[in-house]
């Protein structure tokens, strides 16, 4: 993930930036990570690792989301 996109994803997870994907699983994952961060049960690095794994697993779908997030 490019640095600029990574920063935006971190902002999304902190709730400072709003992005809704057309991919239900991605929205569920963002929501889950936001909830865990708010509860303090995980740190940002752990969340970003999970986001990376998800996006790497589904490159066809991730390409659209990463382009949309970059454009935010």
């Amino acid at each position: 993930m490019e640095v600029a996109v990574k920063e935006k994803v971190e902002k999304i997870l902190r709730g400072e930036l709003r992005y809704t994907s057309a991919n239900l699983a991605f929205n569920m994952l963002i929501s889950k990570m936001q909830k865990r961060l708010r509860a303090g049960s995980v740190d940002m690095d752990t969340c970003m690792k999970e986001m990376d794994e998800f996006l790497a697993k589904y490159p066809i779908v991730a390409k659209v989301d990463l382009a949309n997030i970059a454009a935010l």
């Binding site: 709003r18 992005y19 809704t20 994907s21 239900l24 929205n27 569920m28 963002i30 929501s31 936001q34």
Partner: peptide, 8 residues
């Protein structure tokens, strides 16, 4: 009841 999961 609805819950907002990041827009879904």
């Amino acid at each position: 009841l609805v819950a907002d999961y990041n827009g879904s």
